[in-house]
């Protein structure tokens, strides 16, 4: 019970700090009235959403996880560009070569933030869109289905991101 309250408080504080920093950077001013408004708004949101997620929550602060974050970001940008070029080709082809379907894949990630980032990453990468996240299972809409089998689809869609996110969040 006590540790639950503690972790909930820690989360609220982290959320407050993140929101407040965001506010100050966006405003680019340190005037007292701006700071006061940001402080009140961030406090209210932090209290209302104390069970929400923040970037730092569950992140492992280790040199290897920081390095994994950098690798993840590079891999992610590369995949985002590939996704856009592929879709551009499909959209511009007169025959519209699509072969859509919804497949089921499995993730090994346990943390909530890790799973959220995985679902987001899948949505932004070549031809895949997360439709539902249920326990260990993700349901993915695929513009050009390349594998119907669960194991094969997992390798194709999930494995690339998972190996970095695993080291970042576990």
């Amino acid at each position: 019970m006590n540790s639950e309250v503690l972790s909930s408080t820690r989360q609220s504080v982290e959320l407050f700090v993140t929101l407040f920093m965001f506010w100050v950077l966006l405003n680019g001013s340190l005037a007292p009235d701006t700071l006061a408004i940001g402080c009140v708004a961030a406090f209210v949101i932090a209290v209302l959403f104390r069970d929400g997620l923040s970037f730092l929550f569950e992140f492992r602060i280790l040199p290897s996880s920081l390095w994994a974050s950098v690798q993840y970001f590079v891999y992610f940008m590369k995949e985002l560009i590939v996704a856009n070029v592929r879709l551009a080709i499909i959209v511009l082809s007169p025959s519209l070569p699509i072969k859509p379907g919804i497949v089921k894949v499995r993730t090994r990630l346990k943390s909530r933030m890790g799973r959220l980032l995985l679902a987001n990453s899948i949505t932004l990468t070549p031809g895949t869109l997360t439709v539902e996240l249920e326990d260990d299972w993700l349901y993915i809409h695929w513009v050009t289905v390349e594998a119907v089998d669960m194991e094969d689809a997992t390798t194709l869609i999930v494995a690339g991101f998972e190996r970095y996110l695993e080291r970042m969040y576990g």
């Binding site: 560009i81 879709l87 895949t128 513009v143």
Partner: peptide, 16 residues
């Protein structure tokens, strides 16, 4: 042709 494919195109192109 359908809602899901449209969402796909919409998300990726607007992001990049």
């Amino acid at each position: 042709p359908d809602v899901f494919n449209r969402i796909q195109v919409g998300t990726k192109t607007t992001t990049l």
